[in-house]
Nucleic acid binder design. Sequence first.
DNA 1: CTTTTATGAATGAAGG
DNA 2: CCTTCATTCATAAAAG
Lengths: 212, 212
Amino acid sequence: MMEWDKQHQQKEQEIEGNGNGNGGVGFVKVMTDEQLETLRKQIAVYATICEQLVEMHKNLTAQQDLAGVRMGNLYCDPLMTSVGHKITARQRWTPTPVQLQILEQLFDQGNGTPSKQKIKEITSELSQHGQISETNVYNWFQNRRARSKRKQQNATSNNAESEVETEVDSPKDKKKGPQDQLLQSQQNTSAQRAEDLCFQNPEMSSDLHFLD
Amino acid sequence: MMEWDKQHQQKEQEIEGNGNGNGGVGFVKVMTDEQLETLRKQIAVYATICEQLVEMHKNLTAQQDLAGVRMGNLYCDPLMTSVGHKITARQRWTPTPVQLQILEQLFDQGNGTPSKQKIKEITSELSQHGQISETNVYNWFQNRRARSKRKQQNATSNNAESEVETEVDSPKDKKKGPQDQLLQSQQNTSAQRAEDLCFQNPEMSSDLHFLD
DNA sequence: CTTTTATGAATGAAGG
DNA sequence: CCTTCATTCATAAAAG
C-alpha cells in the first residue's frame, strides 16, 4: 500500500544566487514547516472531498445498476499508483544513544517534574551530544512518563482480572492493541484514497505527482 | 475572497537549525519556483478532479431524476459521522477536515476572543459538517491560541548557535507570515466551495479552481 | 520491498 | 489563560 506520506527527505535547496547585485537583497522562496503543514492539510481536504464524491458516485452508480443503465467503467484504479510521493517528510528527532542514556538517567532520578527551567538546562546539556531542542526534551519526558505509567497499569491488571473492560490486548503485553489499528485506519485511508482516485483525464494523470 | 494574488512577497524565514555548536550550519527550508509550480499543479489537479466528480454526480443525479428514483441528498462527511458509531465509539472529538478549515479560518480572522455567543454560532455552523459541541469549539480555540503562542516562542529562539543559552523570546513575531495568508486563504476558499459541492451544488465549478 | 513495532510529535480535554 | 495528561497520529527503525 503506497503511503501517501511516505518519507521523503526534503532536499535542502541551495539558495540560488539571485543574480541582482542589489546588495544581495534577493528573495528566496522559503517555506516553513508550518506552511508545509498547511499545504498538507489543504491537500488532505481535497483528498477527503474526492473520497466523498467518489462515494456518492458509487452510490448513484449502484442505483443505476439496478435500473440497468450502467454508464461504464469510469474508474481506473491502478493507473495512479505511482503518485505517492510526498511534499515533505516531517522529520523527527531521534535521540543519540548518549542523549538517551542521559535522559533515561534523569528520568530515573525521580524528577518526575521536569520544570521549564529544568528543561532548558537539560536541553543545553544534551545539545553537546547532538542536535536537540527543548521541545524534544519536553516530549520525551511526557512520553516516557505516560508510557511508563501505562505499562505499569497494564501489569497491574494481572491481579484483579476484571474482564474485558480494558481490552486486554495481547499475551505479549504490547503497547498497541488491535483497537488502535482500527481507529487509525479510518484516517489514513481518507488521505490515501485520493491516490487511487484516478480519473480518465489524460492531462491529469500525467501531472499528478509530487516533487521528487 | 481570492487572495491568491494579494500576497506575493516572501518572508525570509528563520533558520530551522537549532543546530548548535556544530559549525552553525543551518539549513533553510527552501522551495524553488519549480517546486511551487508543481504544487500548484497538484492542487489544481485536485480541483479538477473534484469538478469532474461533481459533474458526474450531476449527470447521474439528473438521470435518476428522470427515472423518478431520486435518492435525495447523500450524506456528507462520511468520515466521522457514519463510521463513528461502532460499538467502541470514539471518546474524543476529532474535527473533520472541513471543520478544521473553517476553524482555522476563523482563527486567522483575528478575533482572539471567541465570545460565548460567538461560540454558539460557530458550533451551530460546524455542526452541519459533523458532530461537534460548544465545548469542542471552546477547547479548540484555547488550544490553538496557546500552541500558536508557544510555537512562535520556540521558533524565535532559533538564533543562537555559538553560544549556549540565550534566553530570548521578546520579539512579537506574528505567527503567520504573508505566505501563510496566501496559502490559508486559497485553501479556505477551496474548502468552503468544495463543501457546498457535497450537495449537488450546480455553481461550484466556478470557484473550485484557483492558482490560475 | 512490505509489514510490524517503537517512539517522537500532535492534539482534545481537564485542572488550576 | 496556562499547564498537564491521555490518546492518537505518523514515522524511523526493526523484523520478515
